[in-house]
């Protein structure tokens, strides 16, 4: 029941701090060294992502099963959107962290990753064209968290508790959508331009879902081929998707 302005300011405050890889980077990368750096960073970011989700107003009121479900579905989309946000002012580069920046050619050393880098760079360019604002970015990220297709489209609640949690989740999604509409309304656009912007921004979410699916397949393959040792939280999240 928070006012939209307060809701946005709460999700802005929930933003995770800047994270550093803090590794001695030996260039040129090998397939194993780059995958190790990427997975180490992802593992660190995942811990912060859980803390971020807990700060989204209303998230902790969902059942624990739903919290787990939503996070395990969206984690790679959230990582990718964060990466795009950090990279938006750096054309041609992917800013994984302030001490781990890559260009597309550096992806050559990992089989199959350049295709994903190219998709990420293209989607980042689109956000650059749209001049994505921070307020919009945090709303899109919260929408990804709540937009599990498995949850919304395939499962139906069986118990009263499940039904209650699902209803809470839908109300929370309403709040995030309202917040995004509100953020767009502050940009001084005409009503038609606002509607178009909302459409363009939300349509990008399907591209992010696609990239995440590609990324998940890629990481599973790298793990299966023993290119990289996946462990801890990242292993748990990857296993949840395969």
């Amino acid at each position: 029941h928070l006012h939209l302005e307060e809701f946005i300011s709460r999700i802005m405050e929930a933003e995770p701090p800047e994270i550093y890889l803090m590794e001695d980077m030996k260039k040129p990368f090998t397939e194993a060294s780059m995958m190790m750096s990427l997975t180490n960073l992802a593992d660190k970011e995942l811990v912060l992502m859980i803390s971020w989700a807990k700060k989204i107003p209303g998230f902790l009121e969902l059942s624990l099963a739903d919290q787990i479900h939503l996070l395990k579905c969206c984690w790679l989309e959230i990582l990718m959107l964060g990466l795009m946000w950090r990279s938006v002012d750096h054309p041609g580069k992917l800013i994984f962290s302030p001490d781990f920046k890559l260009n597309r050619e550096e992806g050559q050393c990992v089989e199959g990753i350049m295709e994903i880098f190219d998709m990420l760079l293209a989607a980042t360019s689109r956000f650059r064209e749209l001049k994505l604002r921070r307020e919009e970015y945090v709303c899109l990220k919260a929408m990804i968290l709540l937009n599990s297709s498995e949850y919304l489209c395939t499962s139906s609640p069986q118990t009263a508790e499940e039904l209650e949690s699902r209803n809470k989740m839908l109300r929370l999604l309403d709040s995030v959508i309202d917040a995004l509409v509100w953020a767009i309304s502050k940009l001084g656009l005409t009503t038609q331009q606002q509607t178009l912007r909302l459409g363009h921004l939300t349509m990008l979410l399907s591209h992010i879902r696609h990239m995440s699916n590609k990324g998940m397949d890629h990481l599973s393959t790298m793990k299966r081929k023993n290119v990289v040792l996946v462990y801890d939280l990242l292993l748990e999240m990857l296993d949840a998707n395969t």
């Binding site: 859980i50 624990l64 787990i68």
Partner: peptide, 24 residues
């Protein structure tokens, strides 16, 4: 219980009030 076992770390982090920065 199965959720707890399957998602041990995730479950722990969701329930834990310890600063995630310490855990990271």
């Amino acid at each position: 219980t199965s959720l707890k076992e399957k998602h041990k770390i995730l479950h722990q982090l969701l329930q834990n009030s310890t600063s995630p920065v310490d855990l990271a």
